[in-house]
């Protein structure tokens, strides 16, 4: 992975700790949005522990499976100059899904926007390309001159037909913090 400026592991841990404390407090303050606050608390604590134990991708797989009902996940890197796709990690991905990733860099790369999760099920402009590929969400990890990286979500479990408001908050949270956690792990 090519990485440039990145926050220190200590700084990332501090952000997660602060976030976890805030989410826990908000989940205590009332039952409105209880699920969302509790899930965000669980996500931030899981990432914090994983950061300390250098197992961030494993933690992301666990978050996706338990909180987003997605058991097909890949972490990819796309080289900017060549648009070659590298699968850096995957969980539950059948070979045809891997092939989908390797063959579709031109559609994936423009949608890797730091801080913003791309949800093909939304039906927004441009989503008509990713949805038929079976992709349910694209969470950016980084973007620099050399490459961009993302988490790519495929099929959701049958009982979960799409991402609800709580899921979207988790995906947005991951868009902001999963990348820095992975980079801190690499460079920490």
């Amino acid at each position: 992975m090519h990485k440039h400026a990145h926050p220190s592991p200590k700084a990332v841990a501090q952000v997660l700790e602060t976030g976890a404390a805030r989410f826990l407090q908000q989940s205590l303050e009332g039952t409105r949005h209880l699920g969302a606050w509790t899930k965000l608390y669980a996500v931030s604590q899981t990432l914090l522990s994983a950061l300390r134990e250098a197992r961030v991708f494993g933690a992301l797989v666990e978050i996706c499976s338990n909180l987003l009902a997605c058991e097909q996940l890949a972490m990819i890197e796309i080289e900017s100059a060549t648009r070659v796709v590298h699968i850096l990690g995957e969980e539950g991905l059948p070979p045809e899904r891997c092939e989908t990733l390797l063959q579709n860099a031109r559609f994936l790369e423009p949608r890797i926007t730091p801080g913003t999760a791309w949800i093909p099920l939304d039906g927004k402009k441009g989503n008509s390309i990713l949805a038929p590929l079976g992709i349910t969400a694209l969470v950016p990890l980084w973007r620099d001159e050399q490459s961009s990286g993302a988490l790519v979500f495929f099929q959701l479990l049958p009982q979960h037909s799409g991402f609800d408001a709580e899921d979207r908050q988790i995906l947005e949270f991951l868009s902001l913090y999963a990348g820095p956690c992975l980079r801190s792990q690499v460079h920490g």
């Binding site: 509790t38 899930k39 608390y41 669980a42 996500v43 604590q45 899981t46 522990s49 933690a59 666990e62 978050i63 499976s65 338990n66 909180l67």
Partner: peptide
């Protein structure tokens, strides 16, 4: 077996 699920 998932820490995330237990925590939640």
């Amino acid at each position: 077996d998932s820490s995330t699920a237990l925590l939640m």
